[in-house]
Amino acid sequence: MEAFSSLGVGCGLLAALSWGSSDFSGGVASRRISSFQALILGTVAALVVLVSCAWLYGESFPVMKDTLWAFAAGSLGALGIAALYHGLAIGSAAVVAPSSAVVGALFPVIFGTFLEGAPGGKTYAGFVLGGLGIWLVARTAANGEGLGLKGLGAGLAAGVGFGSYFVCIAQADSSGLFAPLVVAKAASLLLGLVMVVLLRQGIPSPSKSPAALLAGVLDAGGNVFYMMAQQYSRLDVAAVLTSMYPAATVVLAAVLLKERVSGSQWLGVALCLGAVSLIAS
């Protein structure tokens, strides 16, 4: 199989669009409720979509191996989503989203090296370009109040969670397309419930944040497209293609929220996305 089939590339880019839009909605939701409360509402919405699809396609419960991988993926991915929502709530989308994308892309590339051989020189060039992009988006916070560094930390933490999710969920695709995702989202919901109890935040009403529900539906779509992308291409290729999601997040923040993004930050965003392209080529 060629690393880049047209179907694999198309699904990867659709996943990026879905996840980028989901992250924007989740960030908006996290300005009114906590990141873990937004995670709970979004995960419930995603579960409704995924369970319905699994039932319609007649998929059975995953085998034990796939269940364990999916549970690990859901838990780690939930931590990444919560970190991202928190970063988008306190900082700039132009700082948080690209940072999480570059870090999230590194994990599957490293893992893919052991499974399918070392990547080419362009991938290593992408690492350098991504580091420069992260520095540019973090060095000048749009509001001048130092939120860039806060957003950067959250973005890097989110990237670790996302990269781990990419690797783990890819190991759980032998039991179908939707069933492993149901397990992963169930794990995310469990983690979110534990955190709101420990933090004494309470479980929010679905009517309190429609944006969080929308984020969950879009996130479900992103997960499905990613699973399809990694089935039709290399793991690292699928992951880095979907890691282009910051483009949608930043554009939506600039257009809908009128969030001010400096010229050097836009350059940093471009370099981060260019790095993702190099890593995938």
Rank of each mutant, 00 (worst) to 15 (best):
T43D: 11
F162G: 03
A275S: 12
V196L: 08
A94H: 04
V276Y: 00
V167P: 10
A89D: 05
G153E: 00
N143V: 13
D23T: 02
V251Y: 03
F61C: 03
M195G: 05
A248S: 06
F111H: 10
L256C: 04
S75Q: 05
V102D: 01
A187W: 10
G192L: 03
L199V: 11
S75A: 12
R32A: 13
A215C: 10
G133S: 03
Q230W: 03
G161N: 00
L252K: 05
G74S: 14
C53D: 07
S25K: 02
L136W: 03
A78R: 02
R139C: 15
A70C: 03
A54Y: 06
A82R: 01
V44M: 11
T249C: 06
F71W: 11
L88E: 04
A142H: 08
E259C: 12
D23Q: 10
L278Y: 04
G12K: 14
V217W: 11
S60D: 07
F4Y: 14
G268L: 01
Y226E: 04
S34Q: 05
G148H: 09
E59G: 09
V224P: 00
L79M: 13
G148D: 12
I110C: 14
V255L: 15
I90S: 06
L181F: 07
N143M: 14
G120C: 10
S164E: 03
A72P: 04
G159V: 02
L213T: 01
V95Q: 04
S21G: 14
S205A: 12
D66N: 13
S277T: 11
P246A: 09
V196S: 10
A220I: 02
A45F: 11
V9D: 12
S243M: 14
V51Q: 05
A229N: 04
S92R: 13
G153D: 00
F4N: 08
L193E: 02
